[in-house]
Write a protein that binds this DNA or RNA. Structure first.
Lengths: 126, 126
DNA sequence: TTGAGTGTATTAAGACAACTAATACACTCA
DNA sequence: TGAGTGTATTAGTTGTCTTAATACACTCAA
Protein backbone atom coordinates (compact mmCIF):
# COMPACT_ATOMS: atom_id res chain seq x y z
CA UNK A 1 0.00 0.00 0.00
CA UNK A 2 2.73 2.41 0.97
CA UNK A 3 6.50 2.46 0.70
CA UNK A 4 8.59 4.58 3.04
CA UNK A 5 11.65 6.40 1.84
CA UNK A 6 14.40 6.41 4.44
CA UNK A 7 16.49 8.82 2.41
CA UNK A 8 13.68 11.32 2.84
CA UNK A 9 14.64 13.30 5.91
CA UNK A 10 11.08 14.15 6.81
CA UNK A 11 9.55 12.25 9.72
CA UNK A 12 7.96 8.88 9.04
CA UNK A 13 4.51 9.87 10.26
CA UNK A 14 4.52 12.78 7.82
CA UNK A 15 5.35 10.54 4.89
CA UNK A 16 2.55 8.17 5.86
CA UNK A 17 0.10 11.05 6.25
CA UNK A 18 1.01 12.49 2.89
CA UNK A 19 0.86 9.22 0.98
CA UNK A 20 -2.51 8.23 2.39
CA UNK A 21 -3.92 11.71 1.79
CA UNK A 22 -2.70 11.40 -1.79
CA UNK A 23 -4.45 8.05 -2.21
CA UNK A 24 -7.68 9.58 -0.94
CA UNK A 25 -7.41 12.66 -3.16
CA UNK A 26 -6.69 10.50 -6.19
CA UNK A 27 -9.73 8.38 -5.44
CA UNK A 28 -7.71 5.21 -4.96
CA UNK A 29 -9.41 4.79 -1.61
CA UNK A 30 -13.19 4.96 -1.76
CA UNK A 31 -15.40 6.82 0.68
CA UNK A 32 -16.20 4.89 3.85
CA UNK A 33 -13.77 2.13 2.97
CA UNK A 34 -11.75 0.77 5.87
CA UNK A 35 -8.10 1.65 6.25
CA UNK A 36 -5.58 -0.89 7.52
CA UNK A 37 -5.48 -1.05 11.29
CA UNK A 38 -2.83 0.87 13.18
CA UNK A 39 -1.05 -2.35 14.06
CA UNK A 40 -1.20 -4.07 10.70
CA UNK A 41 0.09 -1.05 8.79
CA UNK A 42 2.80 -0.61 11.41
CA UNK A 43 3.84 -4.22 10.83
CA UNK A 44 3.81 -3.74 7.06
CA UNK A 45 6.07 -0.72 7.26
CA UNK A 46 8.16 -2.03 10.17
CA UNK A 47 7.50 0.98 12.37
CA UNK A 48 5.92 1.47 15.75
CA UNK A 49 2.10 1.58 15.92
CA UNK A 50 2.34 5.04 17.45
CA UNK A 51 3.82 6.35 14.23
CA UNK A 52 0.77 5.20 12.28
CA UNK A 53 -1.48 6.46 15.05
CA UNK A 54 -0.01 9.91 14.68
CA UNK A 55 -0.47 9.86 10.92
CA UNK A 56 -4.09 8.78 11.29
CA UNK A 57 -4.70 11.47 13.90
CA UNK A 58 -3.36 14.06 11.48
CA UNK A 59 -5.53 12.72 8.66
CA UNK A 60 -8.57 12.92 10.93
CA UNK A 61 -7.65 16.47 11.93
CA UNK A 62 -7.44 17.36 8.25
CA UNK A 63 -10.82 15.84 7.53
CA UNK A 64 -9.61 12.96 5.37
CA UNK A 65 -10.66 10.08 7.59
CA UNK A 66 -12.77 9.40 10.65
CA UNK A 67 -12.19 7.03 13.53
CA UNK A 68 -14.55 4.66 15.28
CA UNK A 69 -13.10 3.59 18.58
CA UNK A 70 -12.48 -0.10 18.79
CA UNK A 71 -13.45 -0.61 15.14
CA UNK A 72 -11.04 1.14 12.87
CA UNK A 73 -10.40 4.11 10.62
CA UNK A 74 -12.49 4.96 7.56
CA UNK A 75 -12.24 7.29 4.60
CA UNK A 76 -14.50 10.32 4.89
CA UNK A 77 -17.35 10.99 2.49
CA UNK A 78 -16.51 12.86 -0.67
CA UNK A 79 -15.25 16.39 -0.34
CA UNK A 80 -15.29 16.50 3.41
CA UNK A 81 -11.54 16.93 3.42
CA UNK A 82 -11.87 19.49 0.68
CA UNK A 83 -14.22 21.65 2.70
CA UNK A 84 -12.04 21.28 5.75
CA UNK A 85 -8.93 22.35 3.90
CA UNK A 86 -10.71 25.22 2.19
CA UNK A 87 -11.99 26.56 5.48
CA UNK A 88 -8.53 26.44 6.97
CA UNK A 89 -6.91 28.17 4.04
CA UNK A 90 -9.63 30.80 3.96
CA UNK A 91 -8.96 31.61 7.59
CA UNK A 92 -5.26 31.98 6.87
CA UNK A 93 -5.95 34.15 3.86
CA UNK A 94 -8.21 36.48 5.78
CA UNK A 95 -5.68 36.79 8.56
CA UNK A 96 -2.91 37.61 6.09
CA UNK A 97 -5.16 40.15 4.42
CA UNK A 98 -5.92 41.92 7.68
CA UNK A 99 -2.26 42.11 8.58
CA UNK A 100 -1.33 43.49 5.17
CA UNK A 101 -4.09 46.06 5.40
CA UNK A 102 -2.84 47.02 8.84
CA UNK A 103 0.61 47.56 7.36
CA UNK A 104 -0.79 49.86 4.71
CA UNK A 105 -1.77 47.71 1.75
CA UNK A 106 -4.42 49.64 -0.15
CA UNK A 107 -7.68 48.32 -1.53
CA UNK A 108 -6.40 49.01 -5.02
CA UNK A 109 -3.30 46.94 -4.43
CA UNK A 110 -5.09 43.96 -2.99
CA UNK A 111 -7.64 44.11 -5.79
CA UNK A 112 -4.83 44.08 -8.31
CA UNK A 113 -3.35 41.10 -6.53
CA UNK A 114 -6.64 39.22 -6.75
CA UNK A 115 -6.81 39.97 -10.47
CA UNK A 116 -3.29 38.69 -10.96
CA UNK A 117 -3.81 35.50 -9.02
CA UNK A 118 -7.15 34.68 -10.59
CA UNK A 119 -6.03 35.55 -14.10
CA UNK A 120 -2.87 33.49 -14.00
CA UNK A 121 -4.63 30.41 -15.35
CA UNK A 122 -7.87 29.72 -17.17
CA UNK A 123 -10.97 31.28 -15.58
CA UNK A 124 -11.90 28.36 -13.39
CA UNK A 125 -13.81 30.46 -10.90
CA UNK A 126 -17.06 28.63 -11.61
CA UNK B 1 16.02 51.61 27.86
CA UNK B 2 14.81 48.03 27.92
CA UNK B 3 13.83 45.52 30.58
CA UNK B 4 13.98 41.81 29.88
CA UNK B 5 11.35 39.44 31.23
CA UNK B 6 12.81 36.12 32.25
CA UNK B 7 9.37 34.63 32.81
CA UNK B 8 8.74 35.23 29.13
CA UNK B 9 9.73 31.97 27.48
CA UNK B 10 10.61 33.56 24.17
CA UNK B 11 14.32 33.93 23.42
CA UNK B 12 16.12 36.99 24.72
CA UNK B 13 17.16 38.26 21.31
CA UNK B 14 13.53 38.21 20.23
CA UNK B 15 12.45 40.27 23.19
CA UNK B 16 15.18 42.80 22.48
CA UNK B 17 14.24 42.93 18.79
CA UNK B 18 10.59 43.47 19.57
CA UNK B 19 11.12 46.13 22.19
CA UNK B 20 13.47 48.18 20.04
CA UNK B 21 11.19 47.85 17.01
CA UNK B 22 8.39 49.11 19.21
CA UNK B 23 10.41 52.13 20.30
CA UNK B 24 11.12 52.93 16.65
CA UNK B 25 7.51 52.52 15.56
CA UNK B 26 6.33 54.69 18.43
CA UNK B 27 8.78 57.37 17.43
CA UNK B 28 10.67 57.23 20.72
CA UNK B 29 13.87 56.75 18.72
CA UNK B 30 14.41 59.38 16.04
CA UNK B 31 15.60 58.69 12.52
CA UNK B 32 19.35 58.40 12.20
CA UNK B 33 19.87 58.52 15.93
CA UNK B 34 22.50 56.18 17.28
CA UNK B 35 21.55 53.04 19.14
CA UNK B 36 23.53 51.80 22.13
CA UNK B 37 26.54 49.73 21.09
CA UNK B 38 26.31 45.96 21.09
CA UNK B 39 28.58 45.75 24.10
CA UNK B 40 27.05 48.50 26.20
CA UNK B 41 23.49 47.25 25.77
CA UNK B 42 24.72 43.73 26.53
CA UNK B 43 26.24 45.04 29.76
CA UNK B 44 23.02 46.89 30.63
CA UNK B 45 20.91 43.77 30.20
CA UNK B 46 23.53 41.37 31.57
CA UNK B 47 23.56 39.21 28.46
CA UNK B 48 26.17 38.22 25.92
CA UNK B 49 27.01 40.73 23.17
CA UNK B 50 26.07 38.09 20.58
CA UNK B 51 22.50 38.19 21.81
CA UNK B 52 22.29 41.91 21.07
CA UNK B 53 24.13 41.35 17.80
CA UNK B 54 21.46 38.93 16.73
CA UNK B 55 18.67 41.31 17.67
CA UNK B 56 20.34 44.13 15.72
CA UNK B 57 20.84 41.85 12.70
CA UNK B 58 17.15 41.05 12.75
CA UNK B 59 16.22 44.71 13.04
CA UNK B 60 18.45 45.48 10.07
CA UNK B 61 16.88 42.63 8.08
CA UNK B 62 13.46 44.07 8.87
CA UNK B 63 14.49 47.53 7.74
CA UNK B 64 14.33 49.22 11.12
CA UNK B 65 18.00 50.09 11.51
CA UNK B 66 21.20 50.19 9.50
CA UNK B 67 24.73 49.33 10.50
CA UNK B 68 27.98 51.15 9.84
CA UNK B 69 30.90 48.84 10.47
CA UNK B 70 33.18 50.04 13.22
CA UNK B 71 30.85 52.93 14.05
CA UNK B 72 27.54 51.67 15.30
CA UNK B 73 23.88 51.06 14.55
CA UNK B 74 21.45 53.81 13.55
CA UNK B 75 17.70 54.14 13.17
CA UNK B 76 16.55 54.10 9.55
CA UNK B 77 14.87 57.06 7.89
CA UNK B 78 11.12 57.25 8.29
CA UNK B 79 9.00 54.59 6.69
CA UNK B 80 11.85 52.44 5.47
CA UNK B 81 10.79 49.71 7.88
CA UNK B 82 7.20 50.29 6.85
CA UNK B 83 7.95 49.56 3.20
CA UNK B 84 9.98 46.52 4.13
CA UNK B 85 7.21 45.11 6.29
CA UNK B 86 4.58 45.85 3.66
CA UNK B 87 6.54 44.00 1.00
CA UNK B 88 6.91 40.99 3.25
CA UNK B 89 3.24 40.88 4.19
CA UNK B 90 2.23 41.31 0.56
CA UNK B 91 4.31 38.29 -0.39
CA UNK B 92 2.67 36.25 2.34
CA UNK B 93 -0.78 37.41 1.28
CA UNK B 94 -0.24 36.46 -2.32
CA UNK B 95 1.04 33.06 -1.34
CA UNK B 96 -1.98 32.44 0.89
CA UNK B 97 -4.25 33.56 -1.91
CA UNK B 98 -2.72 31.16 -4.40
CA UNK B 99 -3.05 28.27 -1.99
CA UNK B 100 -6.67 29.09 -1.25
CA UNK B 101 -7.42 29.33 -4.95
CA UNK B 102 -5.74 25.99 -5.45
CA UNK B 103 -8.03 24.50 -2.81
CA UNK B 104 -11.08 25.82 -4.57
CA UNK B 105 -11.74 29.31 -3.24
CA UNK B 106 -13.72 31.13 -5.93
CA UNK B 107 -13.16 34.64 -7.21
CA UNK B 108 -16.52 35.64 -5.78
CA UNK B 109 -15.53 34.40 -2.34
CA UNK B 110 -12.17 36.12 -2.24
CA UNK B 111 -13.75 39.32 -3.53
CA UNK B 112 -16.30 39.14 -0.75
CA UNK B 113 -13.48 38.64 1.71
CA UNK B 114 -11.70 41.73 0.44
CA UNK B 115 -14.92 43.72 0.81
CA UNK B 116 -15.34 42.49 4.35
CA UNK B 117 -11.80 43.23 5.41
CA UNK B 118 -11.67 46.66 3.82
CA UNK B 119 -15.12 47.67 5.01
CA UNK B 120 -14.49 46.74 8.63
CA UNK B 121 -13.15 50.19 9.45
CA UNK B 122 -13.32 53.64 7.90
CA UNK B 123 -12.29 53.83 4.24
CA UNK B 124 -8.62 54.52 4.76
CA UNK B 125 -7.60 53.08 1.39
CA UNK B 126 -6.27 56.45 0.21
C1' DT C 1 -18.71 -13.40 29.08
C1' DT C 2 -14.50 -13.47 26.93
C1' DG C 3 -10.80 -12.85 23.90
C1' DA C 4 -9.03 -11.17 19.62
C1' DG C 5 -8.78 -7.02 17.24
C1' DT C 6 -9.03 -2.30 17.40
C1' DG C 7 -7.81 2.71 18.84
C1' DT C 8 -5.63 5.63 22.87
C1' DA C 9 -2.56 7.37 26.46
C1' DT C 10 1.81 7.64 29.02
C1' DT C 11 6.51 7.66 29.29
C1' DA C 12 11.22 7.64 27.83
C1' DA C 13 15.34 7.47 24.70
C1' DG C 14 17.76 9.45 20.97
C1' DA C 15 18.46 12.87 17.50
C1' DC C 16 18.34 17.37 16.32
C1' DA C 17 17.85 22.39 16.37
C1' DA C 18 17.69 26.72 18.94
C1' DC C 19 19.73 29.79 22.11
C1' DT C 20 23.36 31.76 24.42
C1' DA C 21 28.06 32.41 25.77
C1' DA C 22 33.15 32.52 25.21
C1' DT C 23 36.48 34.12 22.43
C1' DA C 24 39.02 35.85 18.68
C1' DC C 25 38.94 38.78 14.54
C1' DA C 26 38.25 43.18 11.75
C1' DC C 27 37.00 47.89 11.04
C1' DT C 28 36.86 53.20 12.21
C1' DC C 29 38.51 57.31 13.94
C1' DA C 30 40.49 60.58 17.13
C1' DT D 1 47.95 53.32 17.86
C1' DG D 2 44.44 52.18 20.94
C1' DA D 3 39.78 52.53 22.43
C1' DG D 4 35.38 51.64 20.72
C1' DT D 5 32.71 49.47 17.45
C1' DG D 6 30.57 45.46 14.63
C1' DT D 7 31.53 40.39 12.96
C1' DA D 8 32.65 35.47 12.80
C1' DT D 9 33.62 30.93 14.84
C1' DT D 10 32.98 27.54 18.08
C1' DA D 11 30.93 25.04 21.78
C1' DG D 12 27.83 23.97 25.79
C1' DT D 13 23.18 23.90 27.42
C1' DT D 14 18.58 23.45 26.79
C1' DG D 15 14.39 22.35 24.73
C1' DT D 16 11.66 20.12 21.12
C1' DC D 17 10.69 16.60 17.80
C1' DT D 18 10.42 11.88 16.46
C1' DT D 19 9.90 7.35 17.51
C1' DA D 20 9.52 3.39 20.36
C1' DA D 21 8.04 0.58 24.45
C1' DT D 22 4.36 -0.45 27.01
C1' DA D 23 0.03 -0.41 29.28
C1' DC D 24 -4.89 0.91 28.99
C1' DA D 25 -9.72 1.03 26.97
C1' DC D 26 -13.25 0.01 23.64
C1' DT D 27 -16.03 -3.18 20.23
C1' DC D 28 -17.91 -7.23 18.64
C1' DA D 29 -18.46 -11.96 17.46
C1' DA D 30 -18.28 -16.57 19.22
Amino acid sequence: MIVLDYRDNRPLYEQVTEKIAHLIICGALESNSKLPSVRSLAMDLSVNPNTIQRAYAQLEQDGYIYTVLGRGNYVCGNNEWKDSKLRELSRELEQAMRKAKEAGLTLQEVTAMVDTVYASEEGETK
